[in-house]
């Protein structure tokens, strides 16, 4: 059973995003990139399925420019068997990414497609759902538990109101939430071994998809304005007094 995991390189969350002048977007030049933390959890779950003998191959896939090879190489060091980079310099909407991933799914024919529930840069939370829709596959989103049985999976989803458990017949798409597992670190021998693992670069054009440009454009990026009082109070009595008389919220 093959498992496919999508990997997105994102700005290291410990770094502050730097804006280009005149609201022209985020400056990612020379920024340190890591695997999107949710994708790392997705990869970890796929690796555990392989280690328990339930999956036979873990393939990671990314869409982007050649820089993404570094992130994919890290995914290989974590334990993926091989990597695919769909190389493009184009700006891709979530819908375009979903269409590209669909093409890769039809080529690789995995029984399970794993994605992080959202990327921590664009915070969109939609590629997995879109991909499941385009494939007409069942979807298990925001999952915190996965149990693979013959030909089907049981997943527990994290909802605003609590938890929900679904049974999905394979093939299926799942998007993972934080509490599914704790990802491993790449060991030094595995980092060395990863250099020998196959990483295939496929140009987007060669996939022969008719991908229209997105019907939207990002016209501005800016920093939110916040003005906080930053008053230090010295006692509980003073705090309550301020909240009543000054802020008028009690």
């Amino acid at each position: 059973m093959r498992v496919l995991v999508s990997i997105k390189p994102v700005l290291d969350p410990s770094m502050k995003p730097r804006l280009k002048p005149e609201g022209a977007g985020i400056d990612l030049n020379q920024a340190k990139r890591i695997i999107n933390p949710f994708d790392e959890i997705a990869l970890e779950e796929a690796l555990r399925l392989k280690e328990s003998g339930k999956a036979t191959e873990v393939v990671i896939v990314s869409v982007g420019n050649l820089q993404a090879q570094e992130t994919l190489r890290h995914g290989l060091a974590l334990g993926a068997d091989r990597a695919l980079l769909i190389q493009t310099e184009r700006y891709c909407s979530s819908l375009m990414i979903a269409k590209i991933l669909k093409a890769m799914v039809l080529r690789e024919l995995p029984a399970l497609m794993f994605l992080g529930k959202q990327a921590i840069d664009t915070d969109n939370n939609q590629v997995g759902q879109m991909l499941a829709g385009l494939l007409n596959w069942p979807q298990g989103t925001f999952i915190s538990r996965l149990e693979l049985q013959t030909n089907e999976i049981m997943v527990t989803r994290e909802l605003d109101e609590g938890l929900e458990t679904l049974k999905l017949r394979l093939p299926a798409v799942v998007t993972v939430d934080l509490r599914l597992n704790t990802p491993r670190y790449a060991s030094l021998p595995n980092i060395v071994k990863a250099k020998q693992k196959p990483l295939t670069v496929i140009t987007l054009e060669s996939l022969d998809l008719s991908l229209a440009e997105p019907n939207y454009k990002i016209v501005n990026t800016s920093l939110p304005i916040s003005s906080r009082k930053k008053i230090k109070v010295n006692s509980v009595q003073e705090l309550i007094e301020k909240l009543k008389k000054e802020a008028k919220v009690l």
């Binding site: 985020i26 915070d123 454009k217 990002i218 501005n220 920093l223 939110p224």
Partner: peptide
């Protein structure tokens, strides 16, 4: 976007 550290106008 970016955990609310940046606002994007579309």
């Amino acid at each position: 976007i970016y955990a609310g550290n940046v606002l994007e106008t579309i």
